[in-house]
Design a protein around this nucleic acid. Structure first.
Length: 802
RNA sequence: GCGGGUGUGGCGGAAUGGCAGACGCGCUGGCCUUAGGAGCCAGUUCCACAACCGGAGUAAGGGUUCAAGUCCCUUUGCCCGCACCA
């Protein structure tokens, strides 16, 4: 019988579909397990060979857990709003809805051809009005609690997408998505107050099991700094507030720097002696994007504000004030006290402008470079702080500032509020009405969903307004409060909106009363295991944790964190070790792999390719090994002994493999789980035959990785039921132990021989057996034995000297 | 610069401080075959050897230990993230 992967896979996919084998409902008698993978953006290119790595991994876990008695939810859906679809629609004059529909159809067929055990009855789509109704509902709740607000602000404007980007979407000065130039533009934008959750987003990382690199990245992104806010009086009368993490160095502050955009400059315009020079510097700074300011302007520049001086509160000394673009208006107070002795940037600036550098922490050589060490230094030239450690001085000076009313302890975050508006068509409309009398009026929840209007043209406008602004009969409405003429908000939400809560909807996807029922949320949350890419660590993960925490606060969800455990897979690279991309010409198409080898081989290979968490290059020769393995398994059924047991000679091997495969799946070590199955098959083949009992266990262990072929063999052998409904085999710890073992015998740590001894030998027995070995006899003859030890089951080491 | 990770055969990669290189690819030889990009058997870290017995070996150097790929220190390469964040 020839192994016909295509026919077998088609057959079983159809059966699973027709019988809804993997559909799940609440069953309180069983422990629940919620496995989640990031839902894809259904792009025009179709599935990439990288997608199945994540999907198969959690499919393996889901399938194994089902057989282990868990009630498993493993859902899939579509994150379908987004610019590529909109751009494709514009270019080809097809409505984005149609484009999405077509892409989803293709993706779905591809996913089904992989034999993934998704519960398709729970499929969701973020562009479905029944779905985005609840995305809009969540926005209204944020608005009603003051966490969504509109603000006139400088934003990142992608000149190519003609659209606003969140800070997180700007990478190295260009648009993360299209690579287009990003410039600053002042626009009125909807913002979400994620900063209000900054501390909890750090603290609650303790409640969850995330990989260290994900934890660290989130913490760094939020960027908490502990310090003090200090007020410096000026000769102009208006004080300058600064934030510093080193209040201990206050005595060393020899000048001040404020950002070019700082509002005091405008206020002081009349008294500045060199206002023209200052204005010129401001204009120059404004022209630079943030990227240029950080990348190109490594050399410090700046202009002194002549005519105003600041007063250092600790010693009442007057110091000059500069403006310089190395101080960012968006962080802290937009102004700093400069301590050139102990801050590298201030040191460079002071050197360039010939400003005094005062040592206030002893331990370095401030002539050569700034001394920034906080661990070892001792305070000097600092009045009442002299002799203290940096740590103590920070406390002492902060207390002093508080007491004098000059400052306070202060925590700052790098995290900015989330820019939530997009001036595009293909997104969730923001359900707000703008009334000239009443301001921003939320749409009545009864009117949700606020549907996207059908339009002729969804081209972005040159003015930077959303295409929706041109649809007058949609835009013009009556104000729900005063009944006067009003307009709808025409901005739409970013793509991150729909993906910030999708895992909640899966628990109750057809509910039209609530985003999901309390009962469903109570039963299924939190997500037990969420796998996704590292690229979503600072965006999607942070945003969805924020939304979830908000929903927790208003009593909608029962858990403070959405995902109990997060893992991330490495990328699959091209054969040349480079990232797969069309332009590099190294893209592998999963459809073709399935055609040539079958889905089971593809699944097996993607799990076997290497360490799951690391990037791995594709190899079109290595995959053949996985196909050969499946063929050898297929051959087993041709000659099966009727015995329903495992033969004694293979008992240990089987029990060990059951243990290893189970443990490895839990630990994401799919590659070694498969290696163990291959090794077991080799052991079986050495005996020249297999029993029904052995094959039965073997097929169940292999099933999560290669579900189709194992079902087929299961059926051919007339085992009862379907393999996916079987129970995972149990192992007996006792039976994992061999009767006799071969141990190494070392002389001074080097292996000199091997002996076979009973597994239960004690130390004395093992050592005498070792010393009876003829090679060892020869080695220790005439030598003095210093030490002998036995590591049970492993080795004997005899330490000798002359 | 800061933070995280990582360095093992020709390749992907295995090794709770206890026999380095499991498993697979590739390669070599043999069998089978009209044929082989099929299958089966054997071999495959490097050096040396007819073979046995050996020697060296996990980026480099040092240390702890009966025993180190694994733990500690120093150096170094690569990958990822953040980066004038006061």
């Amino acid at each position: 019988m020839k192994y016909d992967a295509a026919a077998i896979e088609r057959k079983w996919q159809k059966i699973w579909d027709e019988q809804s084998t993997f559909a799940v409902s609440i069953d309180k008698a069983k422990p629940k397990f919620y496995a989640l993978v990031e839902f894809p953006y259904p792009s025009g290119q179709g599935l990439h060979v990288g997608h199945p790595r994540s999907y198969t991994a959690l499919d393996v876990i889901a399938r194994a857990r089902r057989m282990q008695g868990y009630n498993v939810l493993y859902p899939m859906g579509w994150d379908a709003f987004g610019l590529p679809t909109e751009n494709f629609a514009i270019a080809n004059k097809i409505h984005p809805e149609k484009v999405t529909e077509k892409n989803v159809e293709r993706f779905k067929a591809q996913l089904k051809s992989l034999g993934l055990s998704f519960d398709w009855s729970r499929e969701i789509n973020t562009t479905d009005p029944d779905y985005y109704k609840w995305t809009q509902w969540i926005f209204l709740q944020l608005f009603k609690r003051g966490l969504a607000y509109k603000k006139e602000m400088a934003v990142n404007w992608c000149t190519s997408c003609r659209c606003v980007l969140a800070n997180e979407e700007v990478v190295a000065g260009v648009c993360e998505r299209c690579g287009g130039e990003v410039v600053r533009r002042v626009k009125s934008q909807w913002m979400l107050k994620i900063t209000e959750y900054a501390q909890r987003l750090i603290d609650d990382l303790d409640l969850v099991d995330y990989p260290e690199r994900v934890r660290v990245q989130q913490i760094n992104w939020i960027g908490r700094s502990d310090g003090a806010q200090v007020r410096f009086e000026t000769t102009a009368g208006d004080p300058i507030e600064v934030f510093t993490t080193r209040p201990d160095t206050l005595f060393g502050a020899t000048y001040m720097v404020i950002a070019p955009e700082h509002p005091l400059i405008e206020k002081w315009a009349g008294i500045l002696e060199n206002i023209d020079e200052v204005k010129a510097y401001q204009r120059q700074a404004a022209k630079k994007s943030d990227f240029e300011r950080t990348e190109i302007a490594k050399e410090k520049t700046g202009v002194e504000l002549k005519g105003v001086r600041a007063v250092n509160p600790v010693n009442n000394r007057e110091t000059p004030i500069f403006i310089s673009d190395y101080v960012l208006v968006s962080y802290g107070t937009g102004a700093i006290m400069a301590v050139p002795g102990h801050d590298t940037r201030d040191w460079e600036f002071a050197k360039k402008f010939g400003l005094p550098i005062v040592e206030v922490v002893k331990g370095g050589d401030i002539e050569k470079e700034a001394f920034t060490d906080c661990e070892t230094g001792i305070m000097v030239n600092s009045g009442f702080l002299d002799g203290m450690t940096v740590e103590n001085a920070k406390k002492a000076i902060t207390d002093w500032l508080v007491q004098k009313g000059l400052g306070e302890h202060k925590v700052n975050y790098k995290l900015r509020d989330w820019v939530f508006s997009r001036q595009r068509y293909w997104g969730e409309p923001i359900p707000i009405i703008i009334c000239p009398n009443c301001g921003f009026v939320p749409l009545d929840e009864e009117e949700l969903p606020l549907r996207l209007p059908m339009v002729e043209s969804y081209e972005p406008t040159e003015s930077g307004e959303s295409p929706l602004a041109a649809i007058s009969d949609w835009v013009n409405v009556r104000c729900p409060e005063c009944g006067g003429d009003a307009k709808r908000e025409t901005d739409t939400m970013p793509q991150w909106a729909g993906s910030s809560w999708y895992f909640l909807r899966y628990t109750d996807p057809h509910n039209d009363k609530e985003l999901a029922s309390k009962g469903a949320l109570q039963y299924w949350l939190p997500v037990d295991w969420y796998n996704g890419g590292m690229e979503h660590t600072t965006l999607h993960l942070l945003y969805s944790r924020f939304w979830h925490k908000f929903l927790y606060d208003i009593g909608v969800v029962p858990t403070p964190e959405p995902y109990a455990k997060r893992t991330s897979h490495g990328m699959i690279l091209g054969e040349n070790g480079e990232k797969m991309s069309k332009s590099r010409g190294n893209v592998i198409n999963p459809d073709e792999i399935i055609k040539e080898y079958g889905a089971d081989t593809l699944r097996l290979y993607e799990m076997f390719i290497g360490d799951f968490e690391k990037a791995a290059p594709w190899s079109s020769t290595s995959i053949r090994g996985c196909r050969r393995f499946i063929e050898r398994v297929w051959t087993l059924q041709e000659d099966v002994l009727p015995d329903e047991n495992i033969r004694a000679e293979l008992e240990t091997a089987f029990h060990r493999t059951i243990r290893k495969v189970g443990e490895d799946i839990e630990n994401l070590k799919f590659n070694t789980a498969i290696a163990a199955l291959m090794a077991l098959l080799n052991d079986v083949n050495e005996t020249g035959s297999i029993t029904r009992g052995e094959l039965r266990v073997f097929l169940i262990l292999l099933n999560p990785f290669a579900p189709h072929v194992t079902e087929e063999i299961w059926e051919n052998l007339m085992f009862s039921g379907q393999i996916s409904q079987q129970q995972w085999p149990e192992y007996d710890e006792q039976k994992c132990i061999e009767q006799t073992i071969e141990i190494a015998v070392q002389i001074n740590g080097k292996v000199r021989s091997r002996v076979t001894i009973p597994a239960d030998s004690d130390s004395g027995q093992a050592i005498s057996a070792a010393k009876a070995d003829e090679k060892i006899v020869a080695a220790i003859a005439g030598m003095q034995i210093v030490k002998e030890l036995y590591v049970p089951g492993k080795l004997v080491n005899i330490v000798i000297k002359k």
